[in-house]
Design a protein around this nucleic acid. Structure first.
Lengths: 342, 342
DNA sequence: TTGAAAGCGGTACCAT
DNA sequence: ATGGTACCGCTTTCAA
């Protein structure tokens, strides 16, 4: 059933029906109620494509699937979905084509040109991220999940990566650890740099020298955690503690320690960052893992909310949220073992 | 730039331009080439919403996010995205509202009515799944990832769950295990029933009695794996092997065994089903995990492909794919320990 | 092979 | 408060 038929059916003009259904103020309350009831009864629904063509709105928020196999992705999306379920806005997943950084820019360009999304989310920004400059130029509204360093004013939401890692490192230093390894994210990303900053700051404050051999970069996989932890644990002096970027890398560290007959929480301390996943929880690990915690699901939810605000006219450059991160002590951060002669 | 302007610009009618760009046969080759070149040069792109209104196509495939925190979700979506990146078809994630089964049906109804997707994917079907009957009635094309048991003819793609678990169980029986526990999926789902069937079949074939206390149901989380494994390992006779539904439950079993000072691969054997995740791989576990393997990413890719075929006119009821599952032996499936006096 | 014009199903301006 | 109607930008029938 189309608007015209429906309107005729209930003896009103298409205009009035459209207004009643869209919540315009100039319709009388009684008419509105009647229209809504009739619509429900007769099962009338506006054709979404017609609405979009007429209004110019796409009714969707775009998310580019940057790379395969990011296990944080679904939690984030799920958070967005949570917020958007009450709106008439969908999430549009656009596959990343090719592998060059240039391909990704091309993708955003096409997304903007095809007008199939009203706004997009940018993940894992670089300092001075070219996507930000591009979207600003294309005038496609966006919000950055994470932070960049750029002159282009824009909306962003980030967790306090620097503070989180500083806290973790300080906590381990408090426990007497002198050789603390850091499993950082992919090189070049802003959050990776922020984490390094937090780590170095904590060391500097205590007068502990920075040793680049104790820092690694890479994706958050169990594999990379395992490899780096093993090689780090073979160094002398042996590190007595790890600050891990994610739950997956922490799993790798556990595995590496076991493979070398070291006991987590006794020989080796670990603090990891936990994005909070329903299927793998820090308190359930053996031993329970000390973490800095920040829900990526909550971030997705809030980001959807902020985008809706931007689309409603809110100034994007006014939106900047830095979320604090909570350090939760469990059983993997323990006093450093006595200095052994190695 | 709109079609009209573009057409005027290059001295042709909108009709011809439209046809040239959409690959209609009646346009002369030279005209087509010229139009395409000019379009690229002048940056003309059809407005997607206008196309959709005119054609009635939504240009998107819908996926309902059934529940939060499914770590398989992003791999599957990523596979779909892979196939769709060359098409003008997006993936639309629709958040699940509410928690009743009825809410989900309502959601599909709205999805169909709003015509914002051309087709949908159904996950985790029940035998005789009501969603299938509904979509069939609503005439919204769909494919089932998994299988149902229904009179409604429909497209589906599934892995051979029964065969996979039968193989795993037989393998463990071959190794002399007599008490094999099964960590199955959520109760009532078709794949859960299929897996149980495979397990029981293998036992029956060897004349081993079925013990319901050795079977558990639930989500694929580390937590559930841990809990069930611990309680199973406290039973007498103690199970000497586990067939696990997922990598996450396998992690839980590893953890449970360690917490009871049992050694995986010696005291306790494990075979798990692996959906293949880039961030957590069976060969990297300690010890490397024997698995039945089937890529969920490949399934997503193929499902997108099949949906495109259906949208192109292929008969949905002709599409039924059952994927075999490969058993890969690593170090966690070993001969049963000598019968101990307990 | 090309073009004119009537849809597709709404929204929103301008009247009343 | 309600209605008439010109768009929104493309596709597709029909005619040439």
């Amino acid at each position: 059933m189309k608007l015209k038929d429906f309107a005729r059916e209930i003896g009103l003009s298409p205009t009035t029906v459209s207004r009643a259904l869209s919540g315009y103020p100039e319709v009388s309350a009684s008419t509105r109620v009647r229209v809504m009831e009739e619509a429900a009864r007769l099962g009338y629904r506006p054709n979404i494509n017609a609405v979009r063509l007429a209004t110019g709105r796409a009714g969707a928020i775009g998310v580019v699937m940057t790379k395969a196999g990011d296990y944080q992705f679904s939690e984030f999306i799920s958070g967005m979905a949570d917020r958007l379920s009450s709106e008439d806005t969908d999430i549009l997943i656009t596959p990343m084509i090719g592998h060059d950084p240039g391909d990704e820019l091309q993708l955003y360009r096409r997304l903007a040109e095809s007008r199939r999304v009203d706004a997009v989310v940018i993940h894992s920004p670089l300092p001075n991220d070219p996507r930000i400059a591009l979207l600003d130029r294309l005038k496609l509204p966006f919000i950055v999940h994470g932070r960049s360093v750029t002159d282009v004013p824009h909306a962003w939401l980030d967790i306090d990566n620097e503070g989180a890692i500083r806290q973790s490192t300080e906590h381990l230093l408090d426990l007497g650890h002198k050789h603390i390894a850091l499993l950082n994210g992919r090189e070049g990303l802003t959050f990776t740099l922020d984490r390094l900053k937090g780590y170095r700051q904590a060391l500097t404050d205590r007068g502990i020298p920075f040793d680049p051999k104790l820092v690694s970069h890479g994706d958050f996989t169990d594999e990379i955690g395992f490899r780096f932890a093993r090689s780090a644990l073979k160094q002398r002096p042996q590190p007595t503690a790890f600050v891990a970027g994610s739950m997956m890398t922490a799993l790798g560290i556990y595995r590496a320690a076991r493979s070398m007959n070291l006991v987590i929480g006794r020989d080796v301390s670990v603090v990891a960052h936990d994005d909070v996943f329903p299927y793998l929880t820090a308190e359930n690990m053996v031993p329970p893992l000390s973490t800095t915690r920040s829900s990526i699901r909550a971030a997705g939810k809030r980001i959807a909310d902020l985008l809706l605000q931007i689309l409603a006219g809110q100034q994007a450059s006014d939106i900047q949220e830095l979320w604090p991160v909570e350090l939760i002590l469990r059983e993997t951060s323990r006093p450093a073992p006595e200095e052994a002669s190695v």
